[in-house]
Design a protein around this nucleic acid. Structure first.
Length: 415
RNA sequence: GUGGGCGUAGCUCAACGGUUAGAGCACUGGACUGUGACUCCGGGGGCUGGGGGUUCGAAUCCCCUCGUCCACCCCA
């Protein structure tokens, strides 16, 4: 048997990688324009980091982490998400000495789940974090930045869902209120929700089981039990979004899977071809995490985009790599001249490869066609004498002689 | 972790339990020694995912296993 990739770990082949590169390039442009800088954190961190940040009773920690013991006996975990390592780095390097720090990251995350459409064990996220800003405008503007990125990537049919989960002041009170309500309808809840009712009652609101949706129809809503500061914050976030012409869908039932969220949480869904895995980005505020991890009290807001899901949603939008030309030298003199010419053309921005085979021209034409070149650039004895190449458009079969210095503009003209 | 669909050539798929497992596309040689993609003629390709069983005989039926896709749980 030949060796195959690990289950849930995928190769991104050239046809698709061009789109990925495009997404990443656009994200960097948009984030950078908003004042974010890149941070690169390791793919592995101490297991304890994730236990303390994500929460010990979450599904991620309970059953989805790639955890192993290294040769030294330390328990390490492949990062299941990006915020925890970023905050760890923020605290470790004391970046909080700056009043506000805006960071973005991109890279693979790891969760041990059954693969399905838009979900893999190694998956890629692009995320951004605003550390040290408590303003509701930070929430709104950061969501706005994300919406702008999706607009530029030509993602259509997206919906923004937002909610507020309250804070350390008001959430406990709501939680016990909800627990009392759930006790009353306990028999009508699904097994799962009955089991986690005490540890994590909020999850019952997010359950997709029709039983639970029906049973919790009249459950108290968190948005009606926020403390004054949280309520004001939430109102200002909504106001800020309105100022950006973004109409959110207020969803008081939305609960996120990580324990560190407080106040604003949000999710952006795409209706297109994703089935139930339709969240392409999500995030929220986590005002308590930095101090939980040993730093000073630091309000933060962030999000992560799921690359695979985003790629699915924009896949059919016709993004393509720049056209490629192929150089064919006929004879030793042409090969030598080619070294100089290729340098000239490539320096001017042309994508051009060379066919190194010594086969008859017929076969070489076929080869360059097969590798996907749009143009054949032929240099033989006649052309050298005239200071030209024979430039053939492989789509239209039109061929003409073009002066060496005009090759690049001639190719760009056709595109 | 639970449930379902599917595994035959590089790809998309055929083949009633019965000759030597086929076709299209792709690849490759030639017709055609400075012109691909069109046309014509030829060629290579397969432990039918793997293992076991039933049978005179298995790609086909049964069991196990692996892989994959989809859904659930949950999440980006």
């Amino acid at each position: 048997m030949t060796i195959t990739a690990i289950r849930g770990f995928n190769d991104i082949l050239p046809g698709e990688s061009a789109l990925w590169r495009h997404i990443e390039d656009e994200a960097v442009k948009v984030f950078s324009a908003c004042g974010f800088s890149e941070i690169r954190v390791p793919v592995a961190d101490r297991t304890e980091l994730f236990l303390r940040s994500i929460g010990e009773t979450t599904d991620i920690v309970e059953k989805e982490m790639y955890t192993f013991t290294d040769r030294h006996g330390d328990s390490l975990t492949l990062r299941p998400e990006g915020t925890a390592p970023v905050v760890r780095a923020y605290v470790e390097h004391k970046l909080y000495t700056s009043p506000v720090t805006k960071l973005f990251y991109a890279g693979p995350m790891f969760r041990y789940e059954r693969p399905q459409k838009g979900r893999y064990r190694q998956f890629y996220q692009i995320g951004a974090e605003v550390l040290g800003d408590e303003s509701p405008r930070a929430d709104a503007e950061t969501i706005g930045m994300l919406v702008e990125l999706f607009r530029r990537l030509d993602v259509s049919g997206i919906t923004l869902h937002i909610n507020s989960l309250g804070c350390a002041e008001c959430r406990p009170g709501y939680k016990s209120r909800l627990k009392i309500f759930l006790q009353g309808v306990k028999e009508r809840l699904c097994e799962n929700c009955q089991r986690r009712m005490d540890a994590n009652p909020l999850r019952a609101l997010d359950c997709k089981s029709p039983k639970c949706i029906e049973a919790t129809e009249n459950a108290p809503r968190i948005t009606e039990h926020l403390c004054q500061p949280c309520n004001v914050h939430f109102e200002r976030v909504k106001h800020g979004l309105a100022g950006l012409n973004i109409a959110p869908n207020i969803n008081p039932r939305m609960v996120r899977g990580l324990d560190y969220y407080s106040k604003t949480t949000f999710e952006i869904t795409a209706e297109e071809s994703l089935g139930s895995q339709n969240a392409i980005a999500a995030g929220g505020r986590y005002d308590g995490l930095v101090s939980d991890l040993g730093g000073p009290a630091t309000p933060c807001f962030g999000f992560a985009i799921g690359m695979e899901r985003l790629a699915i949603v924009i896949k059919d939008k016709g993004f393509q790599e720049r056209p490629l030309a192929a150089f064919i030298a006929l004879g030793a003199a042409a090969e030598k001249k080619g070294i100089e010419l290729l340098k000239l053309w490539r320096g001017a921005g042309l994508r051009i490869t060379e066919d190194f085979s010594e086969a008859p021209l017929k076969k070489r034409m076929k080869r360059v066609d097969q590798i996907g070149a749009s143009f054949a650039v032929i240099l033989g004895e006649d052309e050298i004498k005239e200071g030209v190449v024979s430039l053939k458009d492989l789509k239209t079969a039109e061929q003409e002689k073009v002066k060496w210095e005009n090759v690049v503009q001639r190719v760009f003209k056709v595109k």
